[in-house]
């Protein structure tokens, strides 16, 4: 089936099998590998992307369902690795708070946090924790992630 979608601002058109999962389209066809697959059953959240501005688990969305839509992956949050000034505030806060270890859940966590803050720029701790309840991290124990998201939210609110 022919589909077209905007991925990180760029139009992509192609022929896909109906059963192709959005996560596989992004990873295998578009080589956008920051979207990662950790559980296959829409629990872990490593595959989180924004579809038309809302966070979704791309392992549980068919590529054909995204036809005509706009997909934003963790790559769109990336800055120049060598220049922290270009990083997304969430990325800077994750590093400052040591909110990542192995990094595998991190891109999903960043997209989930960005989606959360888009809807609630000033979440309290409880809102941050529940806002991230679709994302599993096995390394950090979560506390530092919560601190990082709260810190980034403050920075983003005070940004001009």
């Amino acid at each position: 089936m022919k589909i077209s979608l905007i991925v990180n601002g760029t139009l992509w058109q192609g022929d896909v099998e109906p059963r192709l999962l959005l996560a596989h389209l992004l990873r295998e066809r578009l080589r956008l590998t920051a979207t990662r697959i950790g559980c296959d059953t829409s629990f872990c959240g490593a595959c989180t992307v924004l579809l038309d501005g809302r966070t979704v688990k791309s392992c549980t969305v068919l590529a054909v369902q995204a036809d005509g839509g706009s997909v934003t992956t963790a790559e769109s949050l990336a800055g120049d690795p060598d220049d922290p000034a270009t990083w997304h505030p969430l990325a800077r806060a994750f590093r400052a708070h040591h909110a990542l270890q192995c990094g595998f859940c991190t891109s999903g966590m960043l997209v989930a946090a960005a989606g959360l803050l888009a809807g609630d720029p000033d979440p309290d701790e409880d809102a941050v924790r529940h806002g991230l309840e679709g994302n599993i991290c096995r390394c950090t124990g979560y506390g530092r992630i919560v601190d990082a998201v709260t810190g980034a939210a403050a920075e983003m609110r005070s940004a001009p």
Binding site: G45, V56, K57, A112, G131, G134
Partner: peptide, 9 residues
């Protein structure tokens, strides 16, 4: 119910 991503779909 479930989590934000699931609630969006």
């Amino acid at each position: 119910v479930a989590d934000p991503q699931v609630r969006h779909r």
